[in-house]
Design a protein around this nucleic acid. Structure first.
Lengths: 187, 187
DNA sequence: TCCTTAGTGTGACTTAGCTCACTTTTTAAT
DNA sequence: ATTAAAAAGTGAGCTAAGTCACACTAAGGA
């Protein structure tokens, strides 16, 4: 049951059968179809999501209605509007399926319980958060030091599978470049 | 002793006298003069730093020798090259004083001990890491959705004191804009 | 199978921001 | 007070990337 989650956690902390069973009690499974929303801008953010299968995009829409992709999430990734989640405020981003997707859902309350009752899991989340921070910082550095083409090449290198699964227009939105510019980069 | 640190931690978790005394045993104090380096690119990163007074810049230098400011750190902020720190690899960034600066230094070993021996502190670091991640993500969104002028205005609003203390050329480096462009934004 | 829609490519033009070169102002150091 | 160094401003021209418009292709639903 939820073997992916177990492997994912055990990359950081080993778990006994009982411990993993206990961890599982905090999650619920949900399935969504392509184009469905897990989080809608302006609504409350109940869950943090762990992707079992499928693909999600986390999107910020500006006043002019332009969509910018803050992040993607595929198998084995966590995703949510974390500001809204942790502060229990309304979402400023939306989370939408690019493919049919199955996720494990974790209520903030259960996240806290898990941290309190199983120190190993707190350590797991701490490590995840640290690497999440480092990852974002790398993306900032990539943006500070590289032009559109270089950033696209870095992305291709870092997540080759993503390039196959996501339309280029969305990759452009993720890189902060227009669709047309990305289309002209290739040679 | 280190009253700032205590207040800083207690914004998140309350500590008894004994607990705080225990926490303190994990830190060492160091003082640096303006222009001194706490971390040099290519060297090992021993510490994570908590700034008691002064001002630091975390800088990434690209192949052409151009400096880009990844982050600033003033009183009450934590700073390090966290990738190098956590993975115990060589620094890819440098950390330099913009003013005379006093810091508390935390070895990775002591960070781990602190997390293991005092769950409250693990919770503290978890919360810090989560908000660090959220902060970086907001900077990414700001870059995805705003032009140079808007980003500068957001920065001014968010950290008014920083604008007073840091030369504009460095703010430009932080915003990913040339010195000259920043200079022309004001009206 | 046809038809609609999403995704992609490309030309023409515009613009934000870069670079280079020089000047002025501010700050720090002797 | 004098000088040097750092920081800031500004003009001129250049370029990466944006915008708008239209054409083409692939793919999913009735």
């Amino acid at each position: 049951m939820h073997q992916i989650l177990r492997e994912h956690i055990e990359k950081i902390v080993p778990l006994s059968e009982d411990e993993f069973a206990f961890v599982c009690t905090h999650f619920t499974v949900k399935k969504f179809k392509k184009h469905q929303f897990l989080i809608q801008e302006g609504e409350e953010v109940k869950y943090s999501y762990f992707v079992i299968s499928g693909l999600l995009k986390l999107v910020h829409t500006d006043d002019t209605g332009k969509e910018r992709v803050v992040s993607f999430a595929m198998e084995d990734w966590w995703e949510s509007d974390y500001y809204a989640y942790f502060t229990q405020t309304r979402a400023t981003m939306s989370l939408e399926c690019l493919e049919d997707t199955e996720v494990l859902c974790l209520l903030l309350e259960d996240y806290k319980k898990l941290c309190d009752d199983l120190p190993k899991m707190q350590r797991f989340f701490l490590e995840k958060a640290n690497y999440g921070f480092i990852g974002s910082q790398r993306r900032i550095i990539s943006w500070l030091t590289s032009n559109a083409k270089e950033r696209y090449e870095q992305l291709t290198k870092q997540y080759p599978s993503l390039i196959q699964r996501v339309p280029k227009s969305l990759l452009a939105g993720y890189l902060g470049v227009s669709r047309e510019t990305l289309s002209r980069l290739s040679p």
